[in-house]
Structures are given as C-alpha cells and as structure tokens.
Design a protein around this nucleic acid. Sequence first.
DNA 1: CCCGCGCTGTCACCAAGTGTCAAGGAAGAC
DNA 2: GTCTTCCTTGACACTTGGTGACAGCGCGGG
Lengths: 213, 213
Amino acid sequence: MTTAPAPSLAERKRRLVADELTKAALGLFAEQGFDAVTVDEIAASTGISKRTFFRYFASKEDVVVRFLADLGSGMRAELAGRPAGESPSTALRNTVWAAIDACAGHAEQTLRVVQLILGTPALRARFLEHQSQWREDLAAELADRLGVDPATGLHPRMAAGMALTAFDVVLQCWSASDGAQDPAALTDQAFAAIAPALDATPVDATPVDTTPR
Amino acid sequence: MTTAPAPSLAERKRRLVADELTKAALGLFAEQGFDAVTVDEIAASTGISKRTFFRYFASKEDVVVRFLADLGSGMRAELAGRPAGESPSTALRNTVWAAIDACAGHAEQTLRVVQLILGTPALRARFLEHQSQWREDLAAELADRLGVDPATGLHPRMAAGMALTAFDVVLQCWSASDGAQDPAALTDQAFAAIAPALDATPVDATPVDTTPR
DNA sequence: CCCGCGCTGTCACCAAGTGTCAAGGAAGAC
DNA sequence: GTCTTCCTTGACACTTGGTGACAGCGCGGG
C-alpha cells in the first residue's frame, strides 16, 4: 500500500492524453466496431497525429487491452496475500474474485469493454494470450504456496488453468447476459465445478486410471 | 469412414501447391523465425505471386495453423463416439488423446510446428482462439452426452475447459522437453489432476462453500 | 537571451491483405 | 479442329497497421 511516489506533471499530462485517446477510441469502437475504425480516425478525433497515437499505445489493440495487464498482477498479488492455511479452492476463488471485482466494479464502463473484447477475434486473441501468461504466474505462486518445485508435476499449472477457465467462463456468461447475471454467483458456480480437483492432494492422490484406449 | 467421393484433378493440383507452399514456409520459418519471413519471400521461393499465396491461405498465420481446424473436429468426433457409459474423465481423456496422438503421430514433423506456434505470440494467439472454439464445441457435446441443457449451469463448459487446459499444458511440456517427455504419460498426469472434478456429479454436488471474502 | 531537452507532426517506408482486370490454359460443345 | 466458357494466375494499385528519421516547437535553466 505504498503511495505513488511522484505524480510528476509530465506524467499527469501523459495520462490525460492517454485517457482522452482511450475514451475517443472506445466510443468509436462501440458505434462502428473495432475493425471498422482506423487509427487515423482515432487520432484525428482527438486532434493528434497517427504517429503520436503510437507513442501512447503500442497497437490499436493496446488501447482496449491495456487494463488487462493490471488484472494479471492484481490476481497474483491477491493469491500471494491469501492466508497460507486457506484451501486451494478458496484461495483461488478469491483470486479470481479480485479480478472479477475489478471488472464488475466499474460495471457499465467495463461491461462494454469486455463485450468488445470477447466479440472481436483480434482482441479476444490478445486476451487469451494474457491469460496464458497469468497461468504461468499463478502456477508459480501456487507452487511456492504448496512448497512444490514448479517443474515437478503438472498440478500447479493445471490448478491455475482451471481457475482461469473459471474466470473466462464467468466473464463470458456475464457479458452474454449483458450484465444481468451476478458475477459473484457465477464465480461460485464455476468454482463449485472445479473445487473437487483443486482440493485433492496434489502429489499422488491418483489411482491413475489408466483405462483402455 | 466413407471414402472421399472424388479427388478431382483440380482438387489434387490445389493440394499439391498448398503442400509445396507449406513446406517452403515452414522451412523459412524454422531458419529465420516467423516474423522475419515475408509473404513475398514464401511466394517467391515457390515461384508464385504474393496474390496467389493469399488464394491458398487466408493469412500468413494460416499456413502454420491450418491443421488445427482438423484437430478440433477430430476431438469432437472422438468425444461423440465414446461409449455413453464411460465416465466423463475417461471420455475426455480419450478425447484429448486423440488430438495428442494426431500431433505426436508425425513426431518430428509436428513437434517443430508446435514449438513454432507456442514460441510465436501471433501464432499462439491463433491457437488459443481455436481452443476457445473447441471449448464451446466440446461443451455442447458434453451437455448432450449428460442430457443437460447447455445454457443451464456452467459445468459442461468448465469440464471442456479443464480438458483443454490439460491439452495445452501437455503440449507445452512436450514441446519444452523437445519431445523427450511421453505425451501419453503427460496426458494421464494432467488428467489425474482434474479427474476428481470431472467425475463429480454435475448438478448440485456442492456444499457451495460460500466462505468469507 | 540562448541552449538543450522532450514532445509532436510530417514524411517516407515496410509488410499484410484485398479488389480489379486482363491474359492464359484446360475442358466441353459444335 | 475450333470456338466458347470457366477457372487459375499474375500484375498492379490501394488500404491499413506500424516504424524510422528528421525537423519544428515549447519550456525551463543557465
């Protein structure tokens, strides 16, 4: 909980422009669709040049997807902060909640962004890439938590993957229902489906059902 | 198992060119990396024009990712063909095996392609997009299998998601180990981690652990 | 007052796709 | 055999995302 060190003037000016740009872009995307809007349009609508746009965002996708970066680190932090005694399923559920909360918090704002992302192949692809990174992060954190070597056994990665599948499915339902469904309830429901696996003992635990092919 | 109806001459000619193009492209990608190779180069190296290249492949990514389409339908077919009495975990494990087999079958060939895909962000993104589609397909098949309305409850989608997480993790390990690890063994290991959840009763089954926040 | 630094716009450029059109070649109709 | 038709291909122009290079402008410090 350290206070931001110095919101220098230049820094704030930069944020201002970035926010303006984001707002303009999201507006245009909403009314014309992501692909139909050109970077030139976005830039022009804010009165800057295309070149400058790319000094603020690495790509057109980046405008929409930027905030995902925070989600990832937020989740990792949440998981790291969970009490050690907590069961894996509970810890992970709270981890996902943290991210869902960050989304559902701004409600109206975020819902449209999420719908845009899920409905645009290029953006969905970026989103999934992030998730894939988060899986590695969470798996590392989880392995640490369980005192297991990350390279040994697939369990941590599988557990992280299940949690993120829950996250993804919840977002999908929430977005498909246009925000009508309660994210928290959906999260609980999703975790109910994976909890038995999350809380099973990692190491052996398995009669290793090597059934016929 | 119906025989292909008529491998008309034009059809075969088309395949031939596509194969040649694919071979050339993969070769170039292997030695220079995906991003460093231009479509012009690929086309030129096969003696055709760029325009023609795009008549065979929808995009540069498509050359590498094309075969994924088959994997998806293969998995769905495998799941559909599994005996009704089989436990979900076994049925899904076999489903994933089918895909893994299709990959590990050609061994040398596919290993390099998989490594290319997993190691190239743009390709990995496409791959994940496919997976996301497969999840919907498998979920539908699964819901059908369990006699459940797909819209009701997240269980089928979660189950499909877990299976695909397994698929992804297995491929990642296999590719990271340079083919040294046995795909079948990895698959078993991954499924050992999720089986408890897969075989739990879908509907209620859950004390719904609504623990504190 | 001038100097340097950072931000910005302009312009040129590359690569991925796409639309259009005209030429060529194979297959069928007469 | 020839004519016609259709399909494939190449050539060319164009749009869009994204990058590099450079020149101008504002601003604070000397």
